[in-house]
Amino acid sequence: MQKVFDNTQIGPMVWKMRVEVPRMVARAKAGQFVILRVNENGERVPMSIAGLDKENGLLTIIYQVVGKTSALMTTVPDGGEISDCVGPLGLPSHVDNWGTAVLVGGGIGIAPIYPIAQAYKEAGNKLHTIIGARSKDLLFYEDEHKAVADELHICTDDGSVGHHGFVSDILKQLLDSGEKIGMIMAIGPVIMMKVVANLTRSYEVPTWVSLNPLMIDGTGMCGGCRVSIGDETKFACVDGPDFDGHKVDFDLLTSRLGAYKEQERVAMKRFLENPGCKLAKAVETFKYPNEVK
C-alpha cells in the first residue's frame, strides 16, 4: 500500500498525483518509470517519473485520463492509498554534455521530459525545450520548464498560445538555424515521435524517443512490451524505454497499442455507469477521441 497526496486536476483530462515511495525516490533517475495498481482487481499501469522530491520521498506522476484505470486513479483521495507501485523500472535516460540539446514534449510527454531537462541542464547542456499541445488549456508545466530551459518554445495546434502549429515546425527552425545541436530527445504521442524522428533523420542529429507499449510486469518476464528497433525485437521495459528514434518501427507500436480497444471500451463503459465513488465532472463525461463529434 502506498500513500497518495495532491491528486489534483491540472488540465481538462490531466491529473497530477504524488506517491509516497521514499526508497524508490532515492534511487530513481530521469527517464525511468513505475508500474502501479490502484486496487486488488486493478490493472498494472506504467507511468513515467515526472518529478522526484527526494526530501519528502515523493514521486510525481502526471497522467491523462484515457480509460478505466486512469479514470479510477482520479478518485484516490488525498492521503488515500493505492495497492502498489513498483520501480524504478527501465533504464535511465542517457545524459551527457552534448553542447546544445533539444527536448521535445508533446501532450502528456511534457511531464516526463521535465526531469530529463533538469538532468541535461545539470550536465552542462544549453537546452532548448519545445512543448506542445492541442490547445492552451492542455498545456501544463510551462513555469517548471521555463525555469530549466535556456529557451522554451511553446506551440499549440490551434494557435491559442505560442506558435500556431506542431512541435516539429519549431524543431525544424532550430535545425535550420545553423546552431549545432548534439542531441534531441522527444516524448509524446507516437505520431509526434515518428514525425520528429523522420525530420531529424536527414539532419543526422541523434534523436532519442521514449516508447510506451503496453506492459505488465516491467521486468522482462512477459515480452508484452516488445518493440522493433532496427529490425531487432527489444523489450521496452528493460532495454528501454528510450530508443534511437531513427530505428523505431512506430507503426508497429501504434498498432500494438490498439490491441485491446474493445475490452478497454467495455471496461470504461461499465466503470462510468457504476462509478461507486465520486468522479470529477470531466471524467463523468469522458469520451474517446473518435466519439467526440
Binding site: N41, G42, E43, T69, I216, Y260, Q263, E264, A267
Partner: peptide, 9 residues
Amino acid sequence: FPNNDTPII
C-alpha cells in the same frame, strides 16, 4: 474480465 481490469485476447 471485466471484474478484473486486465484484458486478454
